[in-house]
Each structure stands twice: as C-alpha cells, then as structure tokens.
Design a protein around this nucleic acid. Structure first.
Length: 873
RNA sequence: GGGUUCUUAGCUCAGUUGGCUAGAGUGUCUGCUUGACGUGCAGAAGGUCAUAGGUUCGAAUCCUAUAGGACCCA
C-alpha cells in the first residue's frame, strides 16, 4: 500500500493542482508520442485544425473530448494511437485581424509591401497561434505534440502548391471571368459556402420604366434600386398576357437614359411583383444567366469595395452602395417614376468572415472543376467505406455532391498559399509549376492566394511529412467534427484523398452535436451566452466538464448546455473520489494480500464481477457504434449504482465484522475491482483516474493508467445466478426501506422483520440485516402473519414488520390497497393479452411464456396482498 | 419552395431488430450529524409517449396526414 496519510486525501475532490501535475507528468514522460511501428496497428486521428485566431469555446470541449476518449481508449486497447494536433492559417480570417491591427497603427495594406504585411501575419501567428494549444492541454488531450503541424509549414506549403500544379496540368483548374460572391470588406472573392443568409426587413420599390415610342410604362419591382444604374434589359415571362404586346420594344432607362430591350425569358415568375423584372447582369446571378441567354450587355457599376465606379452618371459616382440607393430613389421620386414602396422581408447573402452583404460581382478568378472529382468521393460514402455517424448526414452529402458547382479557389488576399502561376510580361503566356520560371525577371506571379480550404483539404494526408509515416498512418481512423463544415472540409478531404492518394482519408466521421444555451439559442459572442470553458474547468474541474459534455450530448442532436449542468460531472468525480477514499481508509488498518483476491468469494463478489464484465462489453459496443453518450451513461450507472450504492455498502459487513483473512480478501478484491473500474473511466476522466490510480499503489516513474491495458471482457465471469441472488436482496431491502419511509420509522430505531420464504441463504440474511438496520430477522417458510404489522410482498417472499403501537391500521390498509391497485392494473393488462386468441396463436412462444409467468407472479402477489388485507387488525 | 431532423415526467433527455409494470439526471416533497461522500444516503409523488388515422396478436417504436420547433439548401 502506498504510504499515504489520510490528510492527503481531502473529503471533497479538489481538481486544481492535480490536473496540471498530471498533464506535466504525461508530457515529461512523452507518453503520447507515436512512432511508426510495423508490429502494432495504428489508430490515427487528425485534429480539425483550429484557426490561429481561435480560442477555446464550449464546442471545442465536446469535440476534443470525444477525440481524446477514442485515442485514450484505443491506446489502452493496444493500438499505436496517434493524434496529430495542428493549426490552420485561416487566410481570410487572419488577414482581417491583421488588417484591423494595422489600422490601429494607421497603416493600410497599400502603404506596405506584401512581404512586410506577411511579416505582420507571422508575428500574429507567433503571438496568438499557440494560445489554443495551451487551452487544449488544460482539457487533458493526449495529442502527440511532437507532431504539431501548421498549414503553412514548409512541407505542407509545398504539398498545397504541388496539388494545385497537378490539378492545373490535368485541366481541372482553370481561370475564368465569372460572377462570384464578392466580399467588399476584404475585397476578395469568396466561395458559395462562405456565404450565409440573413433575413432583412427591407423594402420593395416599384419603378416605372417608360417604353420608347409609346405612352406606356412597364413597372418593375426591385429590392436593390441602386443596381438600376447597371440595368441592360427588362424581362417578362413569355406567357404573360399583360406584356406580350411589348416584347421586343425598347425601354429608356430613367436617370441614365440608356436604351435597353424588353425581352421574354421563362425564368421570370409571373406572380412575383409586377411580373416584369429589371435585369442587371453584372450584379445578380440570375440576371447574369439571363443576359447570357439573351446576349445582353454587362455593365459593372461597382468598385472592389462596392462603391460606384465611372460607369454611372457623374453625380452617382464613387459613393457607397447604400448612399446610391437613397439617391436613386429620391431622384426617381422627383421624376415621378416611383409607383409605390412596400415593406418586404428578403434574405440577403452575407460574407461569413466580413459579416457584410456580399455583392455578386464579375471578376477574373481561378476555379476548380468539381464534377469528375466528386464522383469517387460520392461513391466511397454511398458504399460505406467512409461511414458517417449519425448516418443521416449521408443524404446531405449526396445532395451537395450531386449539385455542386465549380469551386472558386482564388482569393484577393496576401496571407496564404500564393497561386503558383506566372504571366509573361510580354507574351502573356501562362506558366504554372512548383518552381518559378528560370527567367523570372520576365514574369510576374499571380497576386492571389488560395482559399484556406484548398489547403486544409490535404490535412489528413499531408500532416505526415514522410512517405513511410504517410503509408503507415493513412487512411486515418476517425474524424470528429461539427456538421457545419461537412462541405467546406469533410467532403473536400474525401475528394482530395481519393484524387491524390487513391484512398479514403478516414474510415469514420463523427458529427458532433451543436452546443446551445439553456434556451436553445446558439452560443454567440454578441448574446454573451457563451461560457468560457477555462472558467468552467476552474470552477468544476476538467474531468467534470468532460464527463458532463459526453453525458448530455447525444449523437446527432443539438445539446442544451448551462453551467449548472457541470455539477453532474463534479458530483460524479466526487463520488469516485470518495469511493477511493473509503478503500484507502480501510487499507490503513487492513493488510492487503493480492493472493487472497480470489478467496472468500460470495454471491456479492460474483455479482459485481459479473456486472463489471457486462459493463465492459456494453461500453465497448457503445463506443464501437459511436454512442459515446450511452457509454458514459453505462459508466455512470455502474460506478454509482452498482459499485458505490450496493457493492461498497455490502462489503462493509465483512470489512467490519470478518476475520482478518476475510477482511484482507474483501478489501484486496474491492481495490482490484476499483482499479479496473478506473481504467474503464479513464478515457472519459483522465485526471482523477490517474490521481486515484497512483494513490492506490506504489507506481514506477513514468507509469500511468493511460498506458496500461484496458480491462478485457470475460464472458465466463458473467454469473446469472449471483445476479438473481442480489436481485432478491435488493428487492427485500427496498421493500423494507419503503415501509420504513412511508410509515416514518426513525432510522435510528431497530426493527424486527419476519420473512416468509423457503429460500433465503444465510449470506443473504446477513446482508439484508445490515442494509436496513434490523435487530432480529426471522426467516420461516411456514410463518403466520404476526399481529399489527406492516407488510410487503416481493417475488418469492412475504415481509412482515411487527410494529405494535406504532402503526395505524388505516394507514397500512391504504398502503396495501394502493399496492394492490397497482399490481391489479398490470395484471388485467396481461390477462387481456393472454385471453386474446390471436395473441396466443401468433405471438412467439417466448413472449407468451414470459406473459404467463408474469401473470402467475402477479396473481400470487395479489392473493397474498388480499390475505394481508383480510387479516389486518 | 426542396431536404434533413425532432416532439416521451415541471425541466434536460434515454428507450437499439415492434414484446417485462415506459427509465435516468435534475427539480419538488418526506426523513437522515448512518464510521467514503450533505458535491451525500433512503423513500415518495410526477407520464393521454404532440394530434388524428392506419398496419399488427401487440405501437413510444413502423406507415400516412396534421400541428409545432430546429437545421441545411435554393
């Protein structure tokens, strides 16, 4: 036994010092570093790399706890577990932060060179990039920190560029003048996936456009009046009777004076607005498509920052789009060309990073052809080579993969992987390769960088920096991520895996729950409802937070979280702590002897061993099915209900009253079982289990519960007989406690109990006696019911507690009647079933047997209760 | 508009291929200075399984419709 003083073991578990102590110990002994080892099977996870601007939030807690559970579990199962941590350069997000920082110093991007700007970015990365890793260490993650990666590491950068060159050379990347989503804040194109839609209370303006050489007007409705300055046509539905006579006529665009055609296109919805729409090909996707079909002119009226350019009348030039809107409306009103204005709610696309309305915008960009790339990636998911958990995400994935458009991968930014394309200064020739052209002075490189996701899509394959490692660890085993990046990242990693590696990037994908606040709202900074995980860890303990998250977060559903919920985990940790404390206290007086571990066993020992083995199996099964939430419930229930509530209580009889050898056997066994239990809990609660495990015995330097083997399920130890014996004891004990509670017998009062039963063993009697404070227990098969007593009936046993003077007959009668009513209700249900010919004819035999048994038992119980009632006086 | 998903105790949720008297945690009420733990122990109350049909010997579970919520796509 570890020579610990009990003063070292406080009554309440105090996680503070313990957590840092053990994390340091794990790192010092390098316990989570993985090396290629052909004799061991690898189990690999790559972390979803957080942005370098990122700090830990509650969603990370869930996500990383889940990864840690699997890594720790598999490590203890004997796998070569490798969890690669890393960080994403987050092109647009980081650049925005650095621009803002420079602005504080009154520096803008145009004032400094690209190189200088990048220096500022790297400084930012040095300063903030490591914060989240320190926070993750607090969470206890068992990452291999020697493998820490960054998406702009030299090796990784090279891989990203190589990927671009390969795709370019195979014709899968092309450059085109297209309409893209333009973020006026960062002055860059963004992908479709980076746009989110907000409902905006806006207006619908009805403008009158005069038709040339007639007195007629066509009324068009628009949510964006300012774009009229770029109108090059008016469209109506070809079937629309109201406008048929006008098709082919010319409109004179007010304010501008441009003559534009009125044409028919079936895209136009007759029901919307007036049925006539103004067409602004350069600033609306649908208009762009119509313009292509109808050969319309395209007039770009905006600069890169969404101010108006020289293509609009002088008085409207170089103004913000919203100021132009007001000016256009008031001018139209002056001209008497505003028919009406209605309130209108519409959805406006916003840039995810810049949080400003995006502008559909024509520009020269790089695109990736997705159609062929998607095919194998769709197949591996449909065929189940890559499994999604929960499975229903497959449908979302399929839908996206079959409706995908080409991916705009260029960004007009500086921070990121610069596109490896050079243009010849004179010939305009294009050069694309990993190395710059030899006569570099005659070329200039493309200014743009790649979309962040066009680098992180290689994450699963290129965090491994040499081919041997890559071959050994890839495909990785599990990806744990939030479903909101299924398109951004998960799908694209599968695409990249299939294309570059010819193999899937991971076998299983676990989509985590979204963590919301107690009212079901998303966690957000502006609402202030997002708790700081570090505060929670400090207040309740890290293990408590980890356990609570897994306990409340089911697979595939959002989870409502509030700080108080962490009490559940804290209480659970405290419970385990005190169970350990109980055993250690007893070990102060009782000599332990490992050779007695299998001696002096009775049914309680066999039962807890049986329960433990079944729990191992159930936990394994749950984890294999990614039902982590269920696994945590199994563990909770085993630890608290089986081990603490019953086994520990049962063991006290022998620990306090047995012979020295019995005491020693009972305690040695209990500690051994407790130790095995800690191993089961360890992946969920690494700190407390390590601490107690280290207290339980003298351990060698560098030894840790996290690197010993996980308990193995042994089916021969499942003992149905022992479980039945315990069940009987539990039923009797609960029935007696129930009586004590309901008729208010003081706990201090010792009572006498009569059991009418044929088969109560001496051992059972002893345990019953000790668990309900019985003075005298009489067991007799042919017992007559004593007078003035409280009674209860359990399967195989009638219970009588004489309480002369203490018991009110009416109270007892009510109690028995209530119980009878309850049983009768069930009894009638079962009887009805068995009287139903169809049931007896069609239901499986075992179901019928079970029902018959049930009816028989209940019938007997009813008889007994009735006779108790009859003899009540 | 299309898709996915959900609705079970006051609250938050389990309930696996349809088959024990639908379970936990928390909250409520009652009792407890029980030689690990009041962050605890013991006991109790609390459910028309959203609604309406259908399939079935049997439905919280499967099917259809309706109502309400959440998310994704357009």
């Amino acid at each position: 036994m570890h020579p610990k003083n009990l003063e070292d073991i406080p009554k309440a578990y105090s996680p503070k010092d313990i957590e840092d102590k053990w994390y340091k110990y794990w790192e010092e002994h390098n316990l989570y570093h993985s090396e290629l080892d052909e004799n061991k099977k690898a189990y690999t996870i790559v972390i979803p790399p957080p942005n370098i601007t990122g700090i830990l939030h509650i969603g990370h807690i869930l996500n990383n706890t889940l990864q840690d559970i699997y890594i720790r579990y598999k490590r203890m199962m004997g796998f070569n577990a490798c969890w690669v941590p890393g960080i994403d350069h987050a092109s647009i997000a980081t650049e925005a932060k650095v621009v803002a920082l420079l602005k504080e110093q009154h520096i803008t991007k145009d004032q400094i060179s690209r190189e200088e700007f990048l220096k500022h970015c790297y400084n930012w990365k040095e300063k903030y990039g490591g914060i989240i890793f320190q926070q993750l260490r607090k969470l206890g993650v068992s990452c291999d920190w020697q493998r820490e990666r960054f998406t702009m590491d030299e090796h990784y950068y090279k891989k990203v560029i190589e990927a671009f060159v390969k795709l370019y050379k195979e014709g899968l990347i092309y450059r085109g003048y297209r309409m893209v989503n333009w973020d006026p804040a960062s002055k860059s194109a963004i992908s479709d996936e980076e746009v989110f839609y907000k409902e905006i209370q806006g207006k619908l303006w009805y403008f009158k456009y005069p038709v040339k050489e007639t007195n007629e007007f066509v009324i068009v409705a628009t949510t964006r009046p300012e774009t009229m300055l770029g109108d090059t046509g008016v469209a109506v539905n070809p079937e629309d009777e109201r406008y048929k006579h006008l098709i082919g006529k010319t409109i004179v665009l007010p304010i501008v004076g441009r003559e534009i055609p009125l044409f028919a296109d079936s895209y136009v919805d007759k029901e919307f607005g007036t049925g006539a729409v103004k067409v602004t090909p350069a600033h609306d996707v649908n208009d762009y498509d119509m313009a292509q079909r109808n050969n319309l002119e395209m007039i770009n009226i905006f600069n890169e920052d969404a101010t108006t350019n020289g293509n609009v009348p002088p008085e409207f030039q170089e103004l913000d789009r919203y100021i132009v809107r007001e000016k256009v409306v008031s001018r139209m009103q002056e001209l008497g060309l505003v028919e009406k204005i209605e309130n209108y709610t519409n959805k406006v696309g916003y840039s995810q990073r810049g949080n400003v309305p995006i502008e559909p915008y024509l520009s020269e960009q790089w695109f990736m052809k997705m159609e062929d790339l998607c095919k194998p990636a769709l197949k591996v998911v449909q065929e189940g080579k890559v499994k999604f958990h929960p499975e229903h995400w497959v449908k979302t994935y399929e839908h996206w993969m079959t409706n995908i458009r080409d991916w705009c991968i260029s960004r007009q930014l500086w921070w990121g992987h610069r596109i490896p394309v050079w243009y010849h200064n004179n010939t305009k020739e294009i050069y694309c390769d990993v190395i710059p052209p030899a006569d570099i002075e005659n070329w200039h490189q493309d200014d743009d960088v790649l979309d962040t996701w066009a680098s992180s899509w290689l994450w699963a394959q290129d965090v491994f920096t040499n081919q041997h490692d890559q071959k050994y660890y890839y495909p990785t085993d599990l990806l744990v991520t939030a479903p909101d990046i299924i398109f951004f990242w998960v799908a694209r990693m599968i695409i990249a895996g299939e294309y570059f590696m010819g193999d899937i990037p991971f076998k299983d994908v676990y989509f985590t729950s979204l963590v919301r606040d107690a009212q079901g709202r998303k966690m957000s900074k502006s609402l202030g409802n997002s708790p700081d995980p570090l505060d929670l860890m400090a207040e309740y303990g890290t293990d408590a937070l980890r356990f609570t998250m897994t306990y409340i977060a089911p697979l595939g559903q959002d989870v409502l979280f509030s700080n108080e919920m962490v009490e559940l985990g804290r209480n659970f940790a405290n419970k385990m702590w005190n169970a350990g404390r109980f055993l250690l206290m007893n070990a102060q007086n009782i000599k332990l002897d490992p050779f007695l571990k299998h001696k002096h066993m009775d049914f309680t020992d066999k039962w807890i061993i049986s329960r433990f083995n079944q729990t191992i199996k159930e936990v394994n099964d749950a984890l294999d099915k990614f039902e982590v939430n269920y696994a945590s419930k199994l563990i909770y229930s085993y630890v608290w209900n089986d081990f603490c509530d019953w086994f520990v209580e049962l063991s006290k009889t022998r620990l306090y009253n047995g012979t020295d050898e019995v005491k020693s056997a009972v305690l040695s066994r209990a500690i051994s079982l407790f130790e095995d239990m800690l191993k089961l809990v360890h992946p969920f609660m690494p700190f407390i289990t390590e601490e107690i495990w280290q207290l339980l015995d003298e351990r060698k330097t560098g030894e840790s519960i996290s690197t010993i083997s996980y308990p193995k399920y042994d089916s021969t130890l499942v003992d149905i007989q022992a479980e039945r014996e315990i069940e009987f004891v539990q039923n009797v004990v609960t029935a007696i406690r129930n009586i004590r509670g309901e008729i208010n017998i003081a706990p201090s009062k010792q009572i006498n109990v009569f059991l009418k039963s044929a088969a109560v063993t001496f051992a059972q009697e002893r345990y019953i006696k000790s668990l309900v404070r019985i003075d005298q227990l009489t067991v007799d098969e042919n017992l007559d019911k004593p007078k003035a007593c409280a009674s209860a009936v359990v399967k195989g046993c009638d219970i009588f507690i004489p309480l002369e003077g203490l018991i009110d007959i009416n109270v007892e009668r009510a109690r028995i009647e209530k119980e009878m009513a309850r049983v009768l209700n069930s009894f009638n249900g079962v009887r009805k079933k068995l009287e139903n010919e169809n049931f007896v004819a069609k239901a499986p035999v075992d179901v019928i047997e079970r029902e018959k048994m049930k009816m028989h038992d209940m019938e007997k119980a009813l008889d007994k209760l009735q006779s108790i009632l009859d003899n009540l006086e």
